[in-house]
Write a protein that binds this DNA or RNA. Structure first.
Lengths: 218, 218
DNA sequence: TAGATTGTTAATCGATTAACAATC
DNA sequence: TAGATTGTTAATCGATTAACAATC
């Protein structure tokens, strides 16, 4: 299978594609039939050649001078990113952050469906958030195995994050979206996606402070 | 001022330093007086030379064989990241995500203090979340100017994100932490820190799908 | 002293940007 | 045809990793 060497997609590309998609969908609604990479780059304020390169990973083909067929490009990005198939996930930790994810309707359009949430707080158990039931954590193992859940979303307090993650792995969960700031220790074969919001705070404040310093010593 | 050429810190370094700090603080509590880069790297599961390099940006000095003085290193990282000074911020959008940030006590330890939140929902206005008052958006401009707020946190629905961001800029806010998936169009001099959680979902699902594909064609 | 670790410089790696031929 | 845009290859840039001397 010689010609079948698929280059691994750079993660930055993977993160930019949904932004293109979002704009393309808006353009489609407005009846735009063709769209060029430079046009996208202008709206999203990024480099046009980068847009071309990113798109090339999806396999979409454009025409010089004309650009890409809007409908085809949308379809190419969606199927490349796997938006057409839906993966089911369990969420543990039905606090504010967990509730935010449960209420976030667009998750489904990315191919992620939260089918149940778990907590230990008796007040939360039995509630519904965004049409998702909150169950007692004790039911996690049994349900995860039965439903063959592969994805776990971790929105617990830091203190119990490792413990819950271990539990997820025991249930056969293969990928964990970790929204706690903790660095989880898990078996090699488990996919971990860390999303720690506070590291963004650090970057933001550093930029602001550097700006101030610069303004004082022009 | 020749010798004063400060190299710009790589953003990845900036994001890793808080993780080191977290572990160091735990070590300090346990009475560990000295700690080496390889020791940190083992716990956080990363490269030891990278830890050394990251630390070097903070200006902390270690001793061969011994490592770094725990207390000094903590202090160096904290002051390098600006954790000792507190910047005040306004948050707009007191929904689940906004509430999560308001209740997240550790934000203060990173040097960010949310002093007030704003919304338009009458039910939310007047409430307190994590000791922070939720006010009507109409009060934003006046208060921001009076308190000289420099940082805005954007946790509104996507639909109004641009509008609110524009309002923030008008109030003299210099930096915006954007937690909506929208690509904001703002003046050049405004610092924007985008934190779109859903792009992480895309990466996670791609990894999972690629793994499955790989398992099917071994 | 011997050996582990720091700290710096060089090599590698990967992503972004530039260059340019092909083409609609 | 002329000119803008695709698509690919090469050059640049920046971050990570490796190498190694200094040193406690």
């Amino acid at each position: 299978m010689q010609g079948n060497i698929k280059k691994t997609v750079p993660e930055p590309t993977l993160k930019r594609l949904p932004a293109y998609l979002h704009y393309l969908q808006k353009a489609r609604e407005e009846g735009v039939l063709n769209i060029s990479a430079p046009a996208i780059s202008k709206v999203l304020n990024c480099d046009p050649t980068q847009v071309v390169k990113d798109i090339s990973f999806t396999g979409a083909k454009g025409k010089p001078r004309l650009g890409y067929n809007t409908y085809e490009l949308i379809h190419a990005i969606e199927s490349f990113l796997g938006f057409h198939r839906t993966s089911e996930a369990f969420l543990v930790g039905a606090g504010n952050l967990g509730s935010a994810l449960m209420s976030y309707q667009y998750l489904k359009s990315f191919g992620l469906k939260i089918v149940a949430a778990f907590d230990i707080d008796p007040e939360k158990i039995g509630q519904q958030k965004g049409k998702i039931n909150v169950l007692h954590i004790d039911k996690l193992q049994d349900l995860a195995v039965r439903l063959k859940i592969q994805i776990g979303i971790l929105t617990t307090p830091v203190e119990v994050a490792q413990e819950v993650a271990d539990k997820m792995v025991k249930c056969g969960i293969k990928a964990i979206w970790n929204l706690t700031p903790l660095n989880l220790s898990l078996p090699e074969h488990i996919i971990i996606q860390n999303t720690s919001m506070y590291s963004n705070v650090v970057v933001l404040l550093k930029k602001l402070h550097d700006l101030e310093k610069h303004n004082n010593n022009p």
